[in-house]
Design a protein around this nucleic acid. Sequence first.
DNA 1: CGCTGCGTTGAGCTTCTTCAACGATCGTGG
DNA 2: CCACGATCGTTGAAGAAGCTCAACGCAGCG
Lengths: 228, 228
Amino acid sequence: MEFMDFLSTVSLFSGLTREQYDELAMIVTMQEYKRGQPIFAEGDEGNGFYLVMEGLVKIYKLSMDGKEQILHIFGPGEPFAEAAVFTGSRFPAHALALEKSRIIFVPRASFIKMIEANPSLAMNMLAALSMRLKKFTHMIEDLSLKEVPGRLAAHILYLSEQQEDRESVRLNIGKAQLASLLGTIPETLSRILTKLSKQGLLNIDGPVITILDRDGLEELSAGETRLK
Amino acid sequence: MEFMDFLSTVSLFSGLTREQYDELAMIVTMQEYKRGQPIFAEGDEGNGFYLVMEGLVKIYKLSMDGKEQILHIFGPGEPFAEAAVFTGSRFPAHALALEKSRIIFVPRASFIKMIEANPSLAMNMLAALSMRLKKFTHMIEDLSLKEVPGRLAAHILYLSEQQEDRESVRLNIGKAQLASLLGTIPETLSRILTKLSKQGLLNIDGPVITILDRDGLEELSAGETRLK
DNA sequence: CGCTGCGTTGAGCTTCTTCAACGATCGTGG
DNA sequence: CCACGATCGTTGAAGAAGCTCAACGCAGCG
């Protein structure tokens, strides 16, 4: 059972005993998805939650006329669709593998039993949901109160804090996906990237963005500056 | 202790034993706020969460240039700022009383002890956070994928399902607040209300909105229709 | 080699915001 | 009780931001 090594790295499960890991390994299942393959659709019954073991997953909404808004992009170690476990309702969004992925499924009923018996698991889950909530708060703020250049700047700065190299960022998703994550369309994103580039705030080389003027980006992101 | 009657009506605490209610009543405090008075500010230390006992509270974000986005409006029986309890961090938004309100405060440390000892309380809290998450998902979808008329229509339909009278809705907040909740400004909201009214979809009488064409509103809300 | 997906660029247009002015309502103090 | 100011809602005109539609270059891949 190669899950074990992986499960022990998932922060949601930190603090579990050896037996609890065994128990967990018994109730979960694993499945592979090809690039572009859907994992679930909005409206599907949510009878459990998922865990990215390997690969990349996007959670997104679609409008009637086909426009997409990405809510999350999840990589290895991250759980998704946990909320459906506790509302007992249907998935409010779509999920799709952006790359070839291995995804673990944790069925609701057994997981709820585990939670009720493990205060630390409950606390971990509460913390996870709370972080998610905070992230959404941020997203709503960005969508409503910032213009696209500000959102883009904020996102680049965010990425630069996640990655090793502080000064240059490598996008793990395509520009079209990035546009959808920022609540805009590829054309607009492209224009703004070239604009930022022409103003010397950053440098674009395919999927690699180099930060040239961090202060300038921070002003943009805070809404103190306007793009001319 | 007049809390008791109230606490027993709060769904977050459903399933607690008599002793647990007593315990709860011991650790909480109550405070009154006047209309317009702040309860906490973004960035404040979040050392507990709140519960509306009476009145109306808004949770909101401000942009640099003063624009406001309302995240929630809470009335009696609803908890708010719970997430701060579990992330252990600062409040990510502002809270202010829209009316004269009585607000209960539940300090973090004692509440966490209660949760760890009460699986049902943990489950209630997980369910509450999950619902909140779902609501935000909806909000992001609206902001990103719908235009203002669609958001407004969706909101009116939502209100009509909450209230007794299915055909006429009474706004419990002013139109400026409603605009901020929908991610727009009073001018735009006003124009769209009159437009909807002229098209015979609804009727406006001060804070009372009468639904004249429910199907039309649903089409708008789903993005199937455009406003001419 | 051609196809397909992705990114870019241009032109025109729609939606929404900004700025300004004005009427109505409400609560307060004189 | 009236007058006043403040807040709130409405309307108009102009401008900005972002979207739509269309075309094209380029790279990867069968």
